[in-house]
Write a protein that binds this DNA or RNA. Structure first.
Length: 935
RNA sequence: GCCGGUGUGGCGAAAUGGCAGACGCACAGGACUUAAAAUCCUGGGACCUUAAAAAGUCGUGUCGGUUCGAGUCCGACCACCGGCACCA
């Protein structure tokens, strides 16, 4: 395609300009503002300013990119473009905008490359970051690059380790419902004084107790082990029994691991979803993952034994229908209660269950299996003797690992009971016409009475309440809330991650215990290695560094490292104050950028075209508590990063380090961009679009515009390079609205002989039709309609329709003979967030010819619209008969309803449809339409 | 199975309950050109009728409802996409 305008000269020119001027540097309270900076000039600030003097903040964040070796694909810049447009818009709107970028640079690929080649992962990482930076910069995003950070930077991970220590040194106090320093933990009575035990033993016991309460603790429980990756994985990283990364098989393996007690925050993580502005689907995913369910725990006595089994049920109202009980094969009591006759069968079944991978367990789920233990439990509600089975459809990890089976009203129990011919009885009456067998919804209790209690005739909800109260009163059970959420497995057997600031020691009794490194020893650097593989004995790679591991006093370092999620749990806080050497974030900066802001009021007031510098954004009195004001990224982080980050943030909030309980107030997921064939982009399909190629042919502005023009941000949509040509042509039309055709021809000829881009650009002259004249009424109408639409669409993130509004403006304005400078300036302001390079270039040209009104387009006050200009003299009113369009009539704007009705009835096109009919009703919607209902 | 989202021209899409298809792509015709590209202008849902048009009928996944009026609201269903899935 022929080049529409010299973007290849314009774009680098303005990128360099922005870099030099530091145009997009965001200022913290206490920062020294250079008087020459356009932000200082816009807000008439100078020197050191405090938070009260600064305009309102707006924090716009992109999800943390992992700098992979393959570089950007077209999906990345979709969200980045959206946030950049809004960042630029908010700056023009008068906000102090924080819009940073950085690198989630720990991660597996660099380490795997190191394993293969011996090259230090840092080298690969640095190269990839350089490549990403170059690509991202070429798109003209208005990031404050002075705040760039990388998780692999010791200056950063020092604080990741520091936060870990805060978590390690905290416990969750159920009384205050908060994380608190471990020092506030009270010991139980028997550990209060050293009566009867030596001081050493007391301290050992206290330490054990303390360690069992910490938010970071060591567990020996079975974990997901991935042989191919050579590491353990968190629950969230295992998908369908395979590793999320690479799709390798995983197995359960008991190992000593670090866990973070995220379950303590389950209730808050769930409840606080109601305080943030996220999409329903995303909130729902988190709710499902947290998986709160209300029910009751009930104790069943084992017949002829001292043991009791506790079960969890959400349907205590069906207790009378429990005809058997099932323990998970891993349940503690299985060995205790199994009768000698059943021992072999049970042992065999248990063995088979452990050997099955979880994938097999779920895949074979259709066919229920199980074995009778020979033991019986007593149903506490009616004294019935019910058999106890073990079956792997009961999970050890959920609830108590045991259930009461109510085959009449639970699908799984029903299947199992049918297969093993166990009794099925009805205790819930479904609504008319539904079979009670396997009916699992609410109904009315039946067959549920004993000498002491009857639920018969009660609707499910009431029956639940009644039986729960009765159980509680009898000491047989109580209301219980269960969560699916498990604690977060936080250690990995890798090299390229943050080392734990933890050392292991032995006390005088020979007990191994862990201890935090002092803060003064942070950052704890990883050792240098020549071989990055795990050791032959399966220890993490760090164990190879014998000198690093062994400390002079005989203690040894922890050799696990943190998972990649650690760094991304708090990066948004470090952006606020990334150079701070004494704190992970400064208090004043944190409360300014993360604190409450005035809620936005919309629509913007009608201010005409006059510059509105110094005007603080229109606000209402209500304050919202946002944290990050807008966070944009993909859905793939729904339950990993977004849950983990919320958890860390809540710990930091409880400990008083941050000012909001939630990190991300508004979150928007950009939709997936598919290949031109409508399929997911992938190398193997060969449908991957490389942004570099698009930039080369169409330029960054056209690329940005197309990414937004494709459709609503949140939708999945296919890429179409022809579509880029469409918006590119639009930018060409903008260009031709402003420049003189003849001078452009000269420019093109000169370009064949010269390569001095500044000299070349000087050849281009503004269009002769551009003059400093009063705009006509029509021109003002066109402009203000555009301002209104673009402004409203930006507020609602409807970028695609904002662009079409600007296209309409251009289509219209190209027909003007005289183009008033004031109108063109306002249009460039609207275009600037979308196509900043072209806008800056044309803005500067207007300035140099007509004098400057403002030094910088980026901080020029956003134009308001005057609705007076939008009023039409005559309106086109559609006339319907029985809802069908019959005519469109011209009506003067001040015509009365009666006039309009009369004109509608008088219309020649309408008349035939009224003839011979009775008019039942005439609806006149002012300025909209007339509908005549006839019979 | 459960939860969430989406169904509108050849394609991407737009429409506070009020003229369905704005804006753009692709396409067709015309202007400019020796010619092509680029640019500029015009056209375009389907059907029916017609030499052409006008007029008319139908049309937003399907079926029904509310309403003067439904792409939009309500009910039932179908398809596709995403997530969860033996969670008691």
């Amino acid at each position: 395609m022929r080049r529409q305008y010299p973007f290849h000269l314009i774009e680098p020119k303005w990128q360099t300009f922005w870099d030099k001027q530091q145009t997009f540097r965001a200022f913290n309270p206490g920062d020294e503002l250079p008087a020459t900076h356009p932000f200082a000039q816009r807000h008439q600030l100078n020197g050191k300013v405090d938070a009260a003097q600064l305009p309102q903040k707006f924090y716009i964040l992109d999800m943390f990119p992992y700098p992979s070796g393959t570089g950007l694909h077209v999906g990345h810049p979709e969200g980045y473009t959206a946030t950049d447009i809004l960042a630029r818009y908010r700056r023009a709107d008068g906000f102090n905008v924080l819009h940073p970028i950085g690198w989630d640079s720990f991660g597996l690929p660099a380490e795997q490359y190191a394993v293969r080649t011996g090259q230090h992962p840092r080298k690969t990482t640095d190269e990839n970051i350089a490549n990403f930076t170059k690509q991202i910069k070429s798109l003209g995003f208005s990031y404050d690059w002075s705040r760039e950070l990388a998780t692999t930077d010791p200056g950063y991970f020092k604080w990741t380790q520091w936060i870990f220590l805060k978590i390690y040194n905290s416990w969750f106090n159920p009384k205050t419902n908060k994380a608190e320093p471990i020092e506030t933990l009270e010991y139980p009575a028997q550990l209060q004084s050293a009566s009867g035990v030596s001081p050493e033993d007391l301290e050992t016991q206290r330490r054990t107790y303390r360690d069992s309460k910490r938010l970071a603790y060591v567990s020996e429980a079975p974990v997901w082990w991935c042989e191919q990756l050579g590491t353990v994985l968190a629950n969230e990283e295992v998908v369908d029994g395979k590793s999320e990364v690479g799709g390798f098989p995983v197995t359960r393996k008991p190992m000593r691991q670090w866990m973070l007690r995220i379950t303590a925050f389950a209730e808050k993580l769930l409840a606080d979803l109601n305080t943030i502005d996220w999409s329903d689907s995303l909130k729902e995913m988190q709710r499902n993952w947290i998986g709160r369910s209300e029910g009751a725990s009930v104790e069943f006595q084992i017949q002829g034994s001292k043991f009791k089994v506790e079960v969890f049920t959400t349907r205590p109202d069906t207790l009378f229908g429990a005809t058997y009980m099932v323990l998970s094969p891993e349940h503690k009591l299985v060995n205790e209660i199994t009768t000698p006759e059943q021992k072999d069968a049970v042992e065999q079944y248990k063995q088979a269950a452990t050997n099955k991978s979880d994938l097999e367990r779920t895949e074979l789920a259709k066919d229920k299996t199980g074995v009778f233990t020979g033991a019986y439990a007593i149903n506490p509600v009616n004294g019935e003797k019910i058999p106890i089975w073990i079956a792997d459809y009961v999970l050890a990890s959920y609830g108590t690992g045991a259930i009461m089976a109510v085959p009449g009203h639970d699908t799984r129990d029903f299947e199992f009971a049918q297969k093993f011919s166990l009794p099925i009885i009805q205790v819930v009456q479904p609504p008319e016409g539904k079979d009670w067998q396997g009916y699992t919804d609410d109904g009315v209790s039946v067959n549920s009475a004993s000498a002491e209690i009857s639920l018969n005739g009660l609707p499910t909800a009431e029956a639940k309440n009644k039986i729960s109260a009765w159980l509680e009163q009898k000491g047989l059970g109580k209301k219980t809330i269960n969560f699916k959420l498990r604690d977060w497995l936080f250690s990995r057997q890798r090299y390229w991650g943050e080392p734990f600031p933890i050392i292991w020691k032995r006390d005088s009794n020979g007990h191994l215990y862990h201890e935090a490194l002092p803060e003064s020893e942070l950052p704890l650097m990883p050792p240098s290695l020549t071989d990055y593989k795990p050791t032959a004995s399966g220890e993490p790679p760090l164990a190879r560094a014998k000198e690093w591991v062994a400390l002079p006093d005989g203690s040894v370092r922890e050799t696990n490292t943190m998972p990649q999620w650690a760094g991304s749990c708090w990066y948004y806080l470090r952006y606020i104050d990334n150079k701070n050497e004494t704190a992970f974030v400064g208090k004043e900066a944190e409360s300014y950028w993360m604190g409450a802001r005035e809620s936005l009021k919309f629509p913007v007031s009608s201010l005409g075209l006059e510059p509105t510098s110094n005007l603080k954004p229109q606000t209402s009195n209500s304050k919202v508590h946002p944290g990050v004001d807008l966070y944009v990224g993909g859905t793939e982080h729904a339950v990993l990063h977004l849950l983990y980050a919320r958890f860390w943030h809540k710990v930091l909030f409880d400990l008083g380090y941050v000012s909001t309980p939630e990190p991300f107030f508004k979150l928007v997921n950009q939709g997936l961009i598919l290949g031109e064939d409508g399929q997911k982009m992938s190398k193997s399909r060969g449908n991957v679009v490389n942004p570099d190629d698009i930039l080369k042919e169409f330029g960054a502005d056209a690329f940005r515009l197309y990414e937004m023009f494709m459709g609503p941000l949140e939708m999945t949509k296919p890429w179409n390079t022809n579509g880029v040509a469409g918006v590119y042509k639009f930018l060409g039309r903008v260009w031709r609205l402003f420049v003189d055709e003849k001078s452009e021809t000269e420019f093109e000829q000169a370009e064949t002989t010269s390569s001095d881009s500044n000299e070349l650009l000087k050849l281009i002259q503004l269009h002769a039709g551009i003059r400093e004249v009063e705009p006509t009424k029509e021109q003002l109408k066109t402009l203000h309609a555009c301002i209104k639409k673009v402004t409203e669409d930006l507020e609602a993130m409807r970028f695609n329709t904002a662009i079409s509004a600007m296209m309409m403006f251009i289509n219209e304005s190209l027909t003007w003979e005289t183009k008033p400078v004031s109108v063109l300036r306002a249009f460039l302001q609207l275009l600037a967030p979308f196509a900043p390079h072209l806008s800056e270039e044309l803005w500067a040209r207007l300035d140099s010819q007509f004098g400057t009104g403002s030094s910088s387009l980026s901080y020029a006050a956003w134009p308001g619209y005057n609705s007076d200009y939008l009023i039409e003299d005559t309106l086109e009113i559609p006339v319907q008969v029985n809802g069908k369009l019959r005519d469109v009539i011209q009506v003067s704007a001040d015509a009365s309803q009666a006039d309009i009705e009369a004109m509608a009835k008088a219309s020649e096109k309408v008349k035939p449809f009224l003839e011979g009919k009775t008019i039942k009703k005439v609806i006149v919607v002012p300025k909209k339409l007339v509908n005549i209902a006839v019979a």
